[in-house]
Simulated scan of single mutants.
Amino acid sequence: MIVAGAAVQGTAHLAHAQGCQDAFKVVDLGAAAVLAVADGAGGRQRSALGAHIAVDAACRILAQDVPDAADAPEAWTGWIATAGARVVEGYRRAVEGVLSAVAGPSEPVDAGALAATLAAAVVRPPWVAFLAVGDCFGTVLTHEPAGPDERCHLVLPPPPPGATETVFLSSPGAGLRLRSFALWEPRLSGVVLATDGCAALTLDHPSVHELPPHAGPLPAEQFFCGLAATLRANGGDAADLRALLSGPGAARTGDDLTVVCALTEGS
């Protein structure tokens, strides 16, 4: 499998001398890969650290006891649900440990100081298992049996416009608001995760495809399929991905942009 990722500081953050608050991590297990992206909450004191804690916890836990490609669907769905709960708990324990170390003995520990959203995926073709808390999103790429083309599918969408609030890993009841599911796709050729700052660059409004607004955002094939072709051609060199996230098209958002992906090599 080809794995690659990049995080780019947003233009608004750069203008205000604010560091990148996103994080990503990849674990290559040979026959499988674990991907994670996290977005630290803007304005929170240590949210960048929270994002790094989130992807570390996700990759450490999700790399354990991954089901076999031949296992039954209930094995995959049960495993990702249980692992997702462990990720939320692992994040909270790590955050509380960090804050306890820097706070005075009588000071309250506020996990919200390290608030972050998270999306993670375990890719073991033909299976991919997802979990998410908050507004990061995920796309699956598939082979087309009739030809060499790939298609992209937004299977882990961001919350709809007008959502009341962003859920963070540190939010009360975060474990109950965790999204987790497993997808069996025999034509699976890739998985891409992104933070919400990438939405303007990577997602099309439904009107672009002559669909009504309630159809929701759709993955931009030019971005996802083009990215997959580029990374396969260059052997997974993330420099091209970073250049894409730093290009003129990315200037439409002031937020940090982070993308991580795993691709099969035979496409």
Rank of each mutant, 00 (worst) to 15 (best):
residue 164 T to L: 14
residue 164 T to D: 08
residue 165 E to H: 09
residue 165 E to Q: 05
residue 166 T to Y: 03
residue 167 V to A: 00
residue 168 F to I: 07
residue 168 F to R: 06
residue 169 L to M: 13
residue 169 L to E: 09
residue 169 L to G: 04
residue 170 S to Q: 14
residue 172 P to W: 02
residue 174 A to Q: 09
residue 176 L to A: 13
residue 177 R to L: 13
residue 177 R to E: 13
residue 177 R to I: 08
residue 179 R to A: 13
residue 179 R to H: 06
residue 180 S to G: 10
residue 180 S to I: 09
residue 180 S to T: 14
residue 180 S to K: 04
residue 181 F to H: 10
residue 182 A to P: 03
residue 182 A to Y: 07
residue 183 L to G: 04
residue 185 E to V: 00
residue 185 E to A: 03
residue 185 E to G: 00
residue 186 P to V: 08
residue 186 P to T: 02
residue 187 R to Y: 07
residue 188 L to N: 03
residue 190 G to K: 01
residue 191 V to I: 11
residue 192 V to K: 00
residue 192 V to L: 11
residue 193 L to T: 05
residue 194 A to S: 14
residue 194 A to T: 07
residue 194 A to M: 15
residue 194 A to F: 09
residue 195 T to N: 12
residue 195 T to V: 05
residue 196 D to E: 03
residue 198 C to Q: 09
residue 198 C to G: 04
residue 199 A to L: 03
residue 199 A to N: 02
residue 199 A to T: 07
residue 200 A to N: 04
residue 200 A to T: 14
residue 200 A to P: 00
residue 202 T to E: 15
residue 204 D to Y: 08
residue 205 H to W: 15
residue 206 P to K: 08
residue 207 S to H: 10
residue 207 S to L: 15
residue 208 V to P: 01
residue 209 H to I: 00
residue 209 H to W: 10
residue 210 E to S: 09
residue 210 E to R: 13
residue 211 L to E: 15
